[in-house]
């Protein structure tokens, strides 16, 4: 049991973070909080990918004669590249989201979802 907890602790944290983010995206009424939830969800996924690429007793993926040529000595580069992309995509989405929040505030004077819906009526 304890062994299982250690070897899978990352993944549990990942699930926890993602669900926290998802909950904030659905249930929170404040638009900025929704954005925070979005980023937490994304970082959860990034953590998931990075943890699957980690190796015990390995170093960073820069080939160095000091550590030898064998692939087992280096952490997985592929997941890292995928997640570099995901981070940049995430910040771009966040920027667009925050821009929309600012525009909405300018037009409706509130960033609370309920209040904005009230103004429509």
């Amino acid at each position: 049991m304890f062994e299982y907890l250690i070897t899978n602790y990352n993944y549990m944290v990942v699930v926890f973070l993602m669900m926290m983010g998802l909950w904030a995206m659905i249930a929170k009424k404040n638009l900025v909080k929704k954005c925070i939830g979005l980023v937490i969800f994304q970082t959860g996924i990034i953590l998931f990918y990075i943890s699957m690429g980690a190796k015990n007793n390995s170093t960073i993926p820069i080939i160095d004669p000091k550590y030898g040529e064998a692939a087992i000595n280096y952490a997985n580069p592929l997941t890292q590249i995928l997640m570099l992309t995901a981070i940049v995509v995430g910040v771009a989405t966040l920027g667009v989201g925050l821009m929309l929040v600012q525009r909405i505030y300018k037009e409706y004077g509130s960033i609370n979802e309920d209040r904005i819906l009230e103004k429509f009526k």
Binding site: G97, L100, I116
Partner: peptide, 16 residues
């Protein structure tokens, strides 16, 4: 704008 914000949240959720 509000419709887009909803779409953004839902769309990012889908992509995630």
């Amino acid at each position: 704008l509000v419709a887009t914000f909803n779409y953004l949240i839902m769309g990012s959720m889908g992509a995630c």
